[in-house]
Write a protein that binds this DNA or RNA. Structure first.
Lengths: 201, 201
DNA sequence: TTAAGAAATGAATTTGGATTCAATCCATGG
DNA sequence: CCATGGATTGAATCCAAATTCATTTCTTAA
């Protein structure tokens, strides 16, 4: 028994794992998943390609984790925007604005998360996170219905639909970068969503 | 000059081309684009794989054409639903119902057209057709705004958003086949869309 | 120091389908 | 019937990127 993993080694290994994830994230944020080839990730992380496989069984699992890390952040940001002062309309407004502004701030990453063609297994993560966004919104919509602030409706369908609105309506601004129009598009999207839930004007 | 293409040959070649497209379409409608391998398409069309390449330069171009053929049909169906009697609300209602019912009737195909992970070049077609759906809806929304039937709004953003609603809200029903709930989901989606455009209740 | 076991390396291999192309078949007009 | 040139065939080839693994380099504890 001449070797046993020490805290020191553990720490370095954790560091390597993080470095790989960050390199992948950087590449995805730059050129999407298509730019995150294993050789590129390895180079970015300062390791050999083979090393990646000591930390992630396949590229797809690495991608899935990158996807989750980034999406989780977005879900939490949106959730954070829903708590606090204000009625349901105001809180929904905040949540939508949060999502939109974050997406527009980091467009390449947002595109990768929202619409870039990816492997089916990564697409499955995407689906899961769309449901996560929807759950955040559903709670809020449900609350608004109960309080009489929103129209009676199937809150689940509505929440899912709002996620669709966000994804689709942002696609244009994400792809064709037109700085001028972005602000107004964001306002239009939010206004539409508020009408959709039947928020009192 | 012992050979020149005759009408007879032309006809047979056209037939082969159609057979290839139909075989591809059948496979896509069955198991999505992932099921439409060149060998499978060739087998379905009753030709050798090499023959496909005398009619389509690459698999991707074949897929793109299959995608266009199918999508074009949907756009036209939706457009047809918008013409005729009724106010804008009723016509919009018809258009949405048409899209939804057609998608639910042919779920595997709808999934392939709406959300299946595909090659970027096919994804580009998808984007183009989403814009085509949006244009149909935009016209209608614009008309409703002018007539005072709908709320003032950016008709382009609204139309794009409605396309997003249709895609996202249908994903669930398309994937997890729950016959019972479908009818009510369709109604919920339409109701939400009508609220979104600010149609008078 | 050293033996034992991990971890890292990166060139070589694998892979799963699309794509090619030499050989063969067919249609045409003379 | 023949010569010409297009059409068809499908086994062999290609491809690009992920993945492997024999070798080398570290780490540890005795």
């Amino acid at each position: 028994m001449a070797y046993r993993e020490t805290a020191q080694v553990r720490a370095r290994k954790d560091g390597v794992r993080v470095a790989i994830l960050e390199a992948a994230r950087a590449l995805v944020g730059q050129g999407g998943f298509r730019a995150a080839q294993m050789t590129a990730v390895a180079a970015g992380a300062g390791v050999a390609t083979g090393t990646i496989y000591r930390y992630f069984p396949t590229q797809i699992e690495l991608f899935a984790e990158v996807f989750r890390d980034n999406s989780q952040r977005e879900v939490e940001a949106m959730l954070a925007a829903t708590v606090g002062d204000g009625n349901c309309t105001q809180r929904l407004n905040r949540a939508l604005a949060m999502f939109i502004s974050r997406a527009l701030r980091n467009r390449r990453l947002a595109y990768a998360l929202i619409a870039e063609p990816v492997d089916p297994q990564v697409e499955a993560e995407r689906l899961r996170y769309r449901q996560a966004y929807a759950m955040v919104l559903e709670k809020l919509v449900q609350e608004g219905i109960v309080s009489g602030e929103f129209a009676p409706q199937d809150a689940h369908v509505t929440a899912t639909a709002l996620v669709g609105v966000l994804g689709e309506a942002l696609l244009g601004p994400l792809l064709h970068s037109v700085p001028t129009a972005r602000e107004s598009v964001a306002d239009s999207i939010i206004a539409l969503c508020l009408r959709a839930v039947g928020a009192k004007a």
